[in-house]
């Protein structure tokens, strides 16, 4: 019997694919954020979103409840996500410092003005 795809949407458990799709959306939002924002802090937020999307993927792959073949990264996925979070915090600190320096030098945080390395 043919089932309408959305009919049992809420009654079936979700899988890795759903998480990955959400992660992809977050990732793409972040990437586009980086691509479109002229504010350096906007770029930084884009990076956070990208990392977050990646983290979500890690967690999803590490979860035991999301795959129907019983395989999962297990603990590794969660630990990877933890390390990513910690490193993201470090990265944010450095990026902020860079942004501050940039501001001190350019009186602006418009990344389009940081094109001294143009070929």
């Amino acid at each position: 019997m043919f089932n309408f795809p959305l009919a049992n949407l809420l009654s079936e458990p979700v899988g890795v694919a759903h998480y990955v799709t959400v992660g992809a959306i977050l990732f793409i939002c972040g990437a586009l954020c980086m691509a479109t924002k002229r504010n350096a802090l906007g770029v930084l937020m884009g990076i956070e979103l990208v990392l977050n999307g990646a983290n979500l993927n890690f967690v999803a792959f590490g979860s035991q409840y999301l795959r129907n073949d019983g395989h999962s990264l297990g603990l590794d996925g969660q630990l990877m996500a933890l390390f990513v979070i910690v490193l993201a915090a470090a990265e944010a600190a450095v990026a902020l410092a860079i942004a501050l320096n940039f501001y001190n030098n350019h009186d602006s945080i418009d990344v389009d003005r940081a094109d001294q390395l143009r070929g």
Binding site: P13, G15, A17, N68, H71
Partner: peptide
């Protein structure tokens, strides 16, 4: 990415009973 994610059967999730 979405196409790739949903093209893998193992990633579709477990059964309700499980």
């Amino acid at each position: 990415l979405a196409y790739a994610a949903f093209s893998i059967p193992e990633w579709r999730g477990i059964e309700r009973t499980e």
